[in-house]
Design a protein around this nucleic acid. Structure first.
Lengths: 203, 203
DNA sequence: TGACTGACAGATATTGAAATCTGTCATCGC
DNA sequence: GCGATGACAGATTTCAATATCTGTCAGTCA
């Protein structure tokens, strides 16, 4: 009460209210109530409810990505590093669903309603993949790649089944780890392949 | 009115009612009305509303899959055939969304509520992929594959982005064709690869 | 006899009135 | 002056009464 209200305080309170009430019931009035201020004060720091929710989404996404970003910088040969990165991405998300399905659903809802945030986040992720690919090519661990960014995106797309929340229901399915391994092998075989027969080119 | 009511007639009427009213408003009473019978008669042929909707789903899925199944049997080298099969799967679905988004949404809703039907359909699809893979290995067009069924599933999973209705919103996105091509190249490179460096094995 | 009907109970969906929320702004107090 | 307030208009949500639907079954009719 002593200090003047900050955006951080509001962000924290909003995160709390979202956790407690869920994405459909959390209101700006609730956030203000939690802080002991009038809801008008919240609008001094955030132009709209949507903007506040977007800020929460961005922060959450950024924080929960930390362990994966770490895997991107690990000191390993590129193929292991890529596999490790993909596995970490999958595992951290899977743990989140298992640990607290409701919370995961809440933040998935937030993510879905903020496509801009998602686009930025995907750009970060494919950027990390691209870095690993470049390192691998430079070290001769991967075959030369024509368009690294596009290939990075392809690796990301090909593993969607294991990081897109839309599939979270399947992450507990039996045999999901084998499915993940199979896709990884497919990808890594491709990247480490010696130039063999010509691949069918896009029309 | 002359003939006695058949399951086919009900199925057709149900499909029509679903098209017209959408998945949330289509009722058994509507179907009966469309046929000029009492809704009790419908229950003589289908044990429940869910069973009727499931039958419609199964029929629709089967019919709309015809062009893809054809691509699976085409007389082409396996790599081209696989690429062609994947492209046909993508294109037919994409056309369905573009031609009639509402109808696509209706049947997507039906598909989502019938996970059993989906599982069966996916089994069919991966079966078709597996066939192409086996042919390709036999013809020496693909490198030997340890577990064809698992690899077929991996190919299916890796292309989810381009056949799962959950992503239909992205199918009109700019650059989607390049993204599809990139994933295809990744997959086909892997399958046609000469044994190169050892691939990182699953832990 | 066997396909069909229509009334029924319980479940589900619709509707519209009342309550709450969002976003604005004139005003307050430090 | 500057951050905070709370009353307000219009949009959205809630809630309970009402209507419709699902699934059953005893009974009709050809």
């Amino acid at each position: 009460m002593a200090e003047t209200l900050t955006a951080e305080q509001i962000l924290d309170a909003a995160q709390d209210v979202l956790r407690r009430f869920g994405p459909s019931k959390a209101t700006v009035v609730d956030v203000a109530r939690a802080l002991g201020v009038s809801h008008g004060s919240v609008y001094r720091h955030f132009p709209s409810k949507a903007a506040l929710r977007e800020a929460v989404t961005r922060q959450w996404l950024h924080r929960s990505h930390a362990p994966v970003a770490k895997a991107a910088g690990a000191d390993l040969p590129a193929p292991e590093r890529l596999r490790n990165w993909l596995a970490t991405l999958f595992d951290t998300k899977r743990h989140k669903v298992l640990d607290d399905p409701e919370l995961f659903a809440t933040f998935t809802a937030l993510v879905v309603e903020n496509s801009t945030v998602v686009a930025d986040h995907i750009a970060d992720l494919t950027g990390e993949i691209a870095r690993i690919l470049r390192d691998g090519v430079a070290a001769g661990e991967f075959a030369p790649i024509e368009d690294v960014d596009r290939t990075a995106r392809a690796v990301f797309d090909a593993t969607a089944r294991f990081h897109d929340p839309a599939y979270s229901g399947d992450w507990t399915r039996d045999g999901i780890d084998q499915a993940f391994d199979a896709v990884c092998v497919l990808i890594l075989t491709s990247l480490t392949a010696q130039p063999g027969r010509e691949v069918v080119q896009p029309h």
